[in-house]
């Protein structure tokens, strides 16, 4: 049995160096050369400043922008570090609400949000993704229905014809891969950037 001690130490150290240092560092180098934009986090710049990542959702509250899904992410309470406070789209602390199907807190939240959205647009059914929090709290997408639902509000806030906003939404819908994988969706940040560009014209 004693002869197993040396490999237990040396082999562990060698394999640790290979898999824990050489592999991730080499991959960082190669990935940075082959796919520099993605390796840095698919960042979007505007006027030389980073405004976010194409893959990470951000909070929109203004009526003239399309809104993303509710986010359940938290941040440490600035007044008491043992507690946390709500901080939607905190991209340094991802997470979901973890509320279960029989949770009263979830039922109350859903009712409040559905009522609010019904008041905003009484003519359409409320899309489920617009009142449910995502798993990561950073979902960059909404469903095409959720985008169409917000068209009247956005058009009104921007004094744009509804038809023009609708078309902008339609041109930002990403379909299923090969018509099969994933779900149709709209990237909220990309749509809002397109909206700003259209308004600037």
């Amino acid at each position: 049995m004693l002869r197993e001690i040396r490999p237990a130490i040396v082999l562990l150290l060698v394999l640790t160096a290979i898999t824990g240092l050489a592999y991730p560092l080499a991959m960082t180098g190669i990935a940075g050369m082959l796919f520099p934009a993605q390796a840095q986090g698919s960042l979007i710049e505007k006027d030389g400043k980073v405004i976010g990542s194409a893959l990470i959702g951000q909070e929109f509250k203004d009526d003239k922008y399309f809104h993303g899904r509710p986010s359940a992410t938290l941040a440490p309470d600035p007044n008491d570090s043992t507690k946390t406070v709500s901080a939607p789209y905190n991209a340094a602390n991802s997470g979901g609400s973890n509320l279960g199907p029989t949770s009263k807190a979830l039922a109350d939240r859903l009712k409040e949000d559905v009522d609010k959205l019904k008041a905003e647009n009484p003519n359409a059914a409320v899309p489920v993704d617009l009142v449910t929090t995502s798993a990561s709290g950073l979902d960059p997408d909404i469903s095409p229905e959720a985008a169409q639902f917000q068209v009247p509000r956005v058009a009104k806030a921007r004094n744009m014809p509804e038809e023009a906003v609708k078309q902008l939404v339609a041109s930002n819908v990403q379909g299923r891969l090969l018509g099969l994988l994933g779900e149709p969706r709209v990237n909220v940040l990309a749509l809002n950037l397109a909206l700003d560009r259209a308004a600037a014209k």
Binding site: V114, D129, T132, S134, A135, S136, D139, S143
Partner: peptide, 11 residues
């Protein structure tokens, strides 16, 4: 609300 249980799921 239709469209299934989307709480805690990504679009």
């Amino acid at each position: 609300l239709t469209g299934g249980n989307m709480e805690g799921k990504e679009v």
